[in-house]
Design a protein around this nucleic acid. Structure first.
Lengths: 215, 215
DNA sequence: AGATTAATTCTACGTTCGTTGAATTACAAG
DNA sequence: CTTGTAATTCAACGAACGTAGAATTAATCT
């Protein structure tokens, strides 16, 4: 594929990502996407098999980089604690800070992606298979790490705790602006530094309360 | 409006609720809705102004009952603690247990509604105004109660904490089935007793960790 | 430079969309 | 039983949908 064509392909993916994040799969038209990408409608079907295939490609494109970063972050935590156990908060941070780092690198690129992920994650529909396929292996590695950090914790508590984490995380990084309105400006969705500073502490406390209530 | 017509109206709302929850606003066709409601297509436009108006009606229908129940639950907590302060966990429970109660009363009716709410809540789009309009007054009352329970807590911590709660709550009650796959059956989305038992403890610990870290 | 292939545009297909107005049936009041 | 209104059905509108094939331009290779 020529570099010019690659560039076009990326433009299509960018446009699709942004629009899908805002309006969902069915809320966006292929024509809208291609208009935003400044390319002909039919080009969508030259570069992708179908609208659905384009959607999958949008989700897949950034998943690998994100997973790699999270894997690396967890590697570092584990190599830092070869004899003693890492704290729950450290593990949660390894799960969340990569998101922050990517947003810092290129906010425009990644915020639409995270908004899209949030939407897919809270969908009852086929989003489920996608989330499972792309993220479950990594999630299981994190849960395994948490299991070692909380040896007295049952799997049930562990999975529920992760589920709560997942909800808090995806909603926060979706930057829906909901908290901006609610707080009257005291908090801002886009202030990821605030999120990243508070969420690990908040979630870690939850984990510990559920998993090790003997205090 | 005749009772027969009321019945039809409710059938339309039921069908719309179920389908919107699964596929989103744009993922569902008016014809699909009316087919499931076993009524003529044009009846949708006799009972509602437009597809969008129908969607709003679906959201609105149950919001009032839910809000009333939550209000009552918080009333009870506050009347129970007229001199001393209620615990954070009690307040969170007053926020979550009404959902559980409604699901217990009529699981089929409410689970689709909660799935729909989850979807709207994590949407960047016009879902925001709706959530704000229907739920913000009540949410503010809960935050005020939490502020009294955590007098040393800044508003910033309070709002962020609520935001994390909101994410965990909506994802859990959406019953997406994500945790079922992830845990290999150890946890089940539909097991609301498990959620309701664990979430208040989990979230309360988070609040306290963020808001009163002097321990 | 000419030939081959890749990338892009043009045009249009059949379908389905949200919505509407006129015709019909069910129902309530006099 | 008649009459008026509420509820429902029928048929159809223009527009926009996802997609595909043929034609055209741009790039690559010998």
């Amino acid at each position: 594929m020529s570099p010019k064509a690659q560039q076009t392909r990326q433009r299509i993916l960018d446009a699709a990502e942004q629009l899908f994040a805002r309006e969902g799969f069915s809320g966006v038209t292929v024509r809208q996407i291609m208009k935003k990408a400044e390319a002909d409608v039919a080009l969508a079907y030259y570069h992708f098999d179908s609208k659905r295939d384009l959607f999958d490609a949008v989700l897949l494109r950034r998943a690998e980089k994100l997973n790699a970063l999270r894997d690396k972050a967890l590697d570092e935590v584990e190599s830092r604690h070869q004899d003693d156990a890492p704290s729950v908060e450290e593990i949660i941070s390894a799960f969340t800070t990569p998101l922050l780092k990517l947003l810092a690198e290129d906010h425009e690129k990644w915020r639409h992606y995270f908004a899209l992920i949030a939407q897919v994650n809270s969908s009852t529909e086929w989003g489920g298979e996608l989330m499972t396929r792309y993220f479950d292996p990594l999630v299981k590695r994190f849960i395994a790490a948490l299991r070692r950090a909380l040896p007295d914790c049952s799997d049930e508590e562990l999975y529920w705790s992760y589920h709560f984490l997942s909800g808090a995380l995806t909603l926060s990084f979706a930057e829906t602006g909901r908290i901006d309105n609610l707080s009257g400006g005291v908090c801002q969705s886009s202030d990821m530094a605030s999120v990243s500073e508070r969420m690990p502490k908040f979630i870690a406390a939850g984990f510990e309360a559920l998993c090790a209530p003997k205090s």
